[in-house]
């Protein structure tokens, strides 16, 4: 008697997004991956990112000279032996550029991983707890938000010295509060929905709630934030190196190269421009990808 069952998949597909109003912010991240990468913006961002990461990772393997060897006159322009000229000490710019990417990547990727690990945990726990744990955690988080990020980094450096370790710890401290706040907000929103309450009524454990109910539904804002946050890590890491407070010479680092070669900017602009360009490409491509992702979310949620 009941043809409720009669609706075919085709009909269902057509009805998608029409009948009901509520759209799930986190719905089907899986479906979004290919979608946002298929846009022009997504492809462009991906291509550039792959290129830069390639240069950074493979560079050290193909650099013609060692990064500290002095092979020519300081400040000379490009020549047959050095396609990008020589830096302020006479080292080969090309080699240093090829070597200078890896530290930037490491200095940003490692802290980012920890940032999300800590930030997501803290955020979810704070968002789910209805006790004092939430305000306490948030006060701790707020302590770090109070500072301009670079300031906090400098503070740590003056106290603990320069070096990759300090910088990475500093980056985590600077970046995780944002993630924690973001995750807490998303968790709060998710936790007041029916399905989470239904899960609570079923007696699911806290861990199970976080893993099965909340986490899959908050991946969207987290991923949307990832682009911005990763490029922030890159900018800070490179920035601290630019200030000369990061890796010590003769290490090659794109940020450092920009500052140390400033004096020969007129004779050999490539020594400054090329590392600057590469950094720019890195941050722009990451932001492009992040933006493409956010746009793909926005489009699918605007069905009326």
């Amino acid at each position: 008697m009941n043809n409720l069952a009669g609706a075919k998949p085709k009909d269902i597909a057509r009805r998608r997004g029409q009948t009901d109003d509520l759209v799930f912010y986190g719905s089907s991240v899986r479906l979004h991956w290919p979608r946002f990468l298929r846009t022009l913006q997504g492809i462009a961002g991906l291509v550039v990112l792959v290129f830069v990461v390639g240069v950074a990772l493979i560079g050290p393997l193909v650099a013609p000279h060692s990064l500290s060897a002095i092979v020519g006159l300081p400040g000379n322009g490009p020549g047959p032996a050095a396609p990008l000229g020589y830096d302020f000490l006479g080292r080969d710019v090309l080699s240093r550029v090829l070597d200078g990417g890896r530290p930037v990547l490491v200095l940003s990727t490692v802290p980012i991983a920890f940032t999300y690990l800590i930030g997501i945990t803290v955020g979810m726990v704070a968002g789910l707890s209805r006790s004092l744990v939430d305000p306490v955690l948030m006060r701790v988080v707020d302590v770090f938000i109070v500072f301009p990020p670079l300031l906090l980094l400098l503070l740590l450096i003056v106290g603990a010295g320069t070096g990759a370790g300090v910088l990475m710890v500093g980056l985590v401290l600077v970046l995780f509060p944002g993630v924690a706040r973001l995750v807490r907000t998303a968790t709060l929103e998710a936790s007041t929905t029916g399905y989470v309450e239904a899960a609570v009524a079923r007696g699911e454990s806290m861990f199970s709630l976080m893993r099965r109910e909340i986490l899959p539904n908050i991946t969207a804002p987290i991923l949307a934030d990832l682009g911005v946050r990763f490029s922030a890590a890159v900018i800070f890491a490179a920035g601290v190196n630019f200030l000369g407070l990061g890796s010590s010479p003769p290490a090659a680092n794109w940020g450092l190269m920009i500052s140390e070669n400033r004096e020969i900017i007129n004779t050999n602009p490539w020594s400054v421009v090329v590392p600057a360009l590469l950094l720019a490409m890195l941050t722009i491509s990451v932001n492009m990808l992040g933006d493409a992702y956010v746009r793909s979310l926005g489009r699918s949620s605007a069905s009326r």
Partner: peptide
């Protein structure tokens, strides 16, 4: 009054910016 939370809008400025003080 219901729970109100700010929507998680990612910022385009490249660092954490919840302009929040405690």
């Amino acid at each position: 009054d219901g729970v109100h939370s700010e929507p998680a809008v990612p910022s385009a400025l490249p660092f954490q910016i919840q302009s929040v003080a405690s």
